[in-house]
């Protein structure tokens, strides 16, 4: 898949074990414009991926995934990107799902297309606690955004230029996923979901969202609603 103005933004914080493999696969599948945003990792991430032709940005301090994504978006806008895809660095996303997420945006059907792990098949190796947590998150997303979706906090999404210009992430940490939806609704952007596969491995479960984080996301969202 070749698209000159399509950029893939990958935020990374410390856990970069899968990054090299992800970039290699994406390149192999024809996604050449990759923006890696190192969100203040202690390790030298650039050193690990310097063999690839990627755009590399680095936060001097850790700010959070939301901030890293917005930095990637700003950079992509500067490069005149038409479509931006967000992709997690923990190996949960399947590069084969990319065309599914991108197509509705390219065809003009949607301004934002989000992957959903619950739309068709069930997620691979998903722990029950995670499933329960996500159902609660889906409900709260609906309360906060008014959008009825089948998944929450899925990091695989594609956005067109219109969405990129309208949405500005101010929630530095994980509440950004809901903030994007709130902004999408506010700016009357068309949101669509497509089925994607999320691979739960011991590694991704270990480094993924915890229940404690969910409470923090909820508090962040309440304050976002109060102050924004």
């Amino acid at each position: 898949m070749e698209h000159q103005d399509l950029y893939i933004v990958i935020p990374v914080f410390n856990h970069d074990e899968h990054l090299k493999e992800i970039i290699a696969t994406l390149k192999q599948k024809g996604f050449h414009n990759i923006i890696v945003v190192n969100d203040g990792s202690e390790k030298n991430i650039f050193h690990r991926i310097r063999e690839f032709n990627v755009h590399y940005l680095s936060h001097r301090q850790n700010l959070g995934q939301g901030a890293a994504l917005q930095t990637g978006f700003d950079y992509a806008i500067g490069l005149n990107a038409g479509i931006v895809v967000t992709f997690d660095a923990d190996g949960q996303h399947d590069p084969d799902d990319l065309p599914l997420v991108i197509d509705p945006v390219i065809s003009g059907q949607a301004d934002i297309c989000i992957g959903s792990r619950f739309l068709s098949s069930q997620p691979v190796n998903m722990p029950f606690s995670k499933k329960l947590l996500l159902q609660i998150a889906i409900f709260f997303n609906f309360i906060f955004t008014g959008l009825k979706l089948t998944d929450a906090h899925n990091g695989l999404r594609a956005m067109n230029r219109k969405a990129l210009n309208k949405i500005r992430i101010t929630e530095n940490r994980m509440a950004h996923a809901t903030e994007i939806l709130i902004e999408a609704k506010k700016n009357q952007l068309r949101v669509e979901e497509v089925p994607v596969t999320i691979h739960y491995t011991d590694y991704s479960i270990k480094h993924g969202q915890s229940s404690r984080n969910s409470i923090r996301i909820f508090i962040d969202l309440v304050f976002y609603k109060l102050f924004s």
Partner: peptide, 24 residues
């Protein structure tokens, strides 16, 4: 303050972005 801090760090990251064209 957090927003100001984020803005500074983002500006720094954008200014010092690296792009190496090796594999193409």
């Amino acid at each position: 303050l957090e927003q100001m801090f984020t803005k500074m760090i983002r500006e720094d990251a954008l200014k010092n972005a690296e792009h190496n064209a090796i594999d193409q």
